[in-house]
């Protein structure tokens, strides 16, 4: 970069800091209705939250992106949901079982599951995420191979299970054995990391509603996962999104399924308590 370019960069940077301060674009006032059911996309923040009101990421998206989520046919995540539905009753593994063998009709038995994950598991001695719970079922009960965290089958299954809780309020346990995990998640949330020396809070708590480059910053709520991101052209997990955020701030991401990401997932879920589950949501 020559000195002229540098000077320009400086000018642009100064101008844009100003713009970032001035161009406060709050979440919009649109209402999310899917199949005639209205979802809660903003609600009073849960007790102990540093925010006064919490908003689903849907409220920060452009009208076109919002529309994709408002009709299950137009929602590009639904071929994967249908794949998940088919997998639900597909026998796999040496025990000759499918999910349906034990859990029957997912629309009844899986209702509320997504809303309460991560959930403490005594046997495991740590919280189960939806992914680890699915794999525990597969390896222990079905005697089938575990799926990889981001495998198409895993995303299809977690999207299908998650859909059964759509419209239900997020509510996770944060006391008892979960407290330590929640505290760890909170610590991670506020710890600055990476070459840009930023924490989750720097964007998603202090600056949500503002533009970061061309992107409208949300509160980083996780009530719609797995989510179909236009950028990915497919579904992705919560931990994939964490990983992307960490790369953006030039930090080395934790591994998907790591204790760090599980703790962060729990803490973020608790910050979003009361928002409707939107799985499978559509984001940019």
């Amino acid at each position: 970069m020559n000195s002229t370019t540098l000077k320009w960069a400086g000018l642009f940077a100064t101008a844009t800091v100003f713009a970032a301060g001035a161009a406060v674009a709050e979440p919009d006032n649109n209402t999310l209705v899917i199949d005639g059911n209205q979802l809660v996309t903003d609600v009073e923040a849960p007790k102990g939250s540093p925010l006064s009101r919490i908003y689903s990421g849907w409220r920060f998206r452009s009208p076109e992106t919002q529309t994709f989520e408002m009709d299950d046919f137009e929602n590009p995540a639904f071929p994967a949901v249908e794949q998940g539905e088919a997998l639900w009753s597909t026998v796999d593994g040496e025990a000759g079982k499918s999910c349906a063998t034990c859990h029957n009709d997912a629309s009844e038995t899986m209702k509320g599951v997504r809303a309460s994950m991560p959930k403490w598991n005594e046997k495991l001695g740590k919280p189960h995420t939806l992914e680890t719970q699915v794999n525990a079922c597969r390896t222990e009960n079905m005697k089938a191979e575990a799926w990889k965290w981001e495998a198409p089958n895993m995303l299809a299954m977690t999207a299908y299970i998650g859909l059964q809780s759509r419209g239900m309020p997020v509510k996770v346990q944060t006391d008892g054995p979960m407290q330590k995990w929640n505290d760890n998640g909170k610590e991670l949330y506020y710890t600055r990391v990476g070459q840009l020396d930023m924490s989750c809070a720097n964007c998603h708590e202090d600056n949500y509603g503002k533009m970061i480059r061309a992107d409208h910053l949300s509160q980083g709520q996780i009530n719609g996962f797995p989510t179909y991101r236009l950028k990915w052209g497919g579904l992705g997990s919560i931990h994939r999104r964490f990983s992307g955020c960490m790369k953006n701030i030039r930090a080395t991401p934790y591994k998907r399924g790591s204790d760090e990401f599980i703790a962060l997932e729990l803490y973020l879920a608790s910050r979003g308590a009361g928002l409707s589950v939107e799985t499978p949501s559509v984001r940019n």
């Binding site: 642009f12 940077a13 800091v17 840009l196 970061i212 480059r213 061309a214």
Partner: peptide
């Protein structure tokens, strides 16, 4: 600080 970082990144985008 954070604001400068946000600004710098934005500046890069404009460039």
């Amino acid at each position: 600080d954070r604001r400068q970082v946000l600004g710098l990144t934005a500046g890069a985008a404009v460039l």
